[in-house]
Design a protein around this nucleic acid. Structure first.
Length: 466
RNA sequence: GGCGGCAUAGCCAAGUGGUAAGGCAGAGGACUGCAAAUCCUUUAUUCCCCAGUUCGAAUCUGGGUGCCGCCUCCA
């Protein structure tokens, strides 16, 4: 039985979806006013991996990552660029998809609703809250009245007294309670606005998630996920809105990922200590970033630095090399009867598979799971050879692919070399045969300059990209 | 001030009562015309400190120390 740590109960719980074969997941996505940074990438990668694992287990996953495309930051960015909020949103959503592709997120099956495409549903939602007495309108601003919701604070484990005593001085005296939050914001000159029963305005931040979760996934969803910094107030407010409206639990499991730090401080736009995913992609393949994110447990804070990315790159290279070694064996091994050694190997590989899956069952411990990928590589390097029966090599190869696929890693295909380069390699082989090492080394250097590294092995020349 | 989390080798990091996974870097070796790459082997008597519980603790309890997150926009 799969266990997930549920922030709501602060316990690891057996995961049971509402419908037997289906899982609904809502992940808080980015506000599209800029490129995403490495911190933003963590939940995207982690929960994409959870989604892949569910699918591996045979669930049909309804997976949603929203785009917040209207709020103060969007408006500021549009003003700064002297353009419209819509144009800013369109542009950075496009940029998002480019980064997502690099990070190997399963985008084609992901639902990405936008706040501004759900305005009428948002208005409808707020109207119902107002009718039920949970919301009140003050001169075009509509607030959620938290004193009407007795469970307020149950997710973030805060009580109202503590919140009020810790709260900053409230300048807004319209509110009945200082902790009330905005559902609908009255229009300000020059800002985008929509017509509503309370006059022109725009939605507050928290309401969009409640509305889109309900519209696309249902009144009660299985999993709601996001960064732990969103736990309060964002997720707390979502719970309040949704449960007051429907009278049902909003989400059965709340999953929160830890922060990505830079020198022990949370990476964030406001601290200006952030690295954009796009920036990282200029130096590294983004699969390296995915590897880095999955190499630590998702709930722990983790430090980001160029050094650890280099470590990740080298680790990922080892995995790809190991995979390539098995592929090379596949080319030369023969169909043979299985002997006792073969059976031993198959047994060992299955043990690694089971351990990998056990780790995934335990609150998606990807770091631990990943270690078994390395175990398989070392094991196959030591125990497989061109004398191994094809079936054994295939079994190892398939298991490696099956497991790395769950993590969304090792899916890059080796490209084919073009004729010209193949010709050069052939020419170098001739030169080596004739002991013309000067020419041979020159060709090797030329190819290296083109990013193709040659290695001479007993089985002939192999190559890889640098 | 309130609430919560973390502390494991040079670096990253898993491990919630049974005697320290895995990766990077380093060292040794194999392979090679030489290299590079690759592969193999190897690296913590010990898990921030002090007490306690226990046959047994990195893991549980109490007390320290240090660091971080949330309480304001934030993944």
């Amino acid at each position: 039985m799969m266990k997930l740590y549920n922030t709501l109960t602060k316990k690891k719980e057996d995961f049971k979806p509402i419908n037997e074969n289906k899982v609904t997941m809502y992940v808080c996505g980015p506000t599209v006013y800029n490129y995403i940074h490495v911190g933003n990438a963590r939940p995207l990668v982690v929960f994409d991996t959870l989604r892949r694992y569910f699918e591996y287990k045979g669930y049909d996953v309804d997976y949603l990552v929203n785009f917040t495309d209207i709020d103060d930051k969007m408006i500021n960015e549009a003003n700064a660029e002297n353009t419209t909020v819509k144009k800013v949103a369109d542009r950075f959503i496009e940029e998002y998809f480019e980064d997502a592709e690099g990070l190997l997120l399963k985008e084609d099956e992901t639902n990405h609703p936008r706040a501004t495409e759900n305005i009428s549903e948002i208005i409808e939602f707020i109207k119902k809250l107002e009718n039920k007495g949970y919301a009140y309108n003050v001169d075009g601003n509509v607030y959620f009245n938290i004193s009407k919701y007795k469970d307020y604070g149950k997710l973030s484990k805060k009580n109202l007294e503590d919140l009020v005593s810790g709260a900053r001085i409230e300048v807004n005296s319209e509110k009945k309670d200082p902790m009330d939050f905005t559902l609908w914001k009255k229009e300000k000159p020059g800002e985008p606005s929509w017509n509503s029963p309370w006059g022109k305005g725009r939605p507050g931040w928290h309401i969009e998630c409640s509305v889109m979760a309900k519209k696309y996934l249902g009144d009660t969803i299985d999993i709601h996920a996001g960064g732990e910094d969103l736990q309060f107030p964002h997720h707390e407010n979502e719970v309040a809105q949704s449960e007051c409206l429907t009278g049902k639990p909003f989400a059965n499991y709340w999953l929160h990922n830890g922060m990505i730090n830079v020198q022990d401080k949370k990476m964030s736009k406001s601290k200006k200590n952030f690295f954009t995913v796009r920036g990282v992609s200029e130096e590294f393949d983004l699969e390296v970033l995915r590897f880095f994110i999955l190499s630590a447990h998702y709930r722990k804070p983790v430090n980001y630095s160029r050094d650890v990315v280099i470590q990740s790159k080298n680790g990922l290279d080892r995995l790809y090399n190991g995979k390539k070694n098995i592929e090379d064996l596949l080319e030369v091994c023969e169909d043979k009867e299985l002997d006792s050694d073969s059976n031993e190997i198959i047994k060992s590989i299955n043990t690694y598979r089971n351990k990998f899956l056990e780790s995934m069952e335990d609150d998606i411990n990807t770091a631990d799971a990943m270690s078994y990928l390395f175990e398989i590589i070392r094991y196959s390097n030591s125990n497989l050879s061109k004398k191994s029966p094809r079936k054994v090599v295939e079994e190892t190869y398939n298991t490696l692919n099956e497991l790395s696929g769950i993590l969304g890693l090792l899916s890059k295909k080796e490209e084919m070399l073009d004729e010209e380069i193949l010709g050069l390699i052939e020419k170098r082989n001739e030169a080596r045969k004739n002991k013309d090492y000067g020419l041979a080394d020159k060709i090797r250097d030329d190819l290296e300059a083109k990013g193709i590294l040659l290695k001479d092995t007993p089985d002939g020349v192999k190559w890889r990209r640098s």
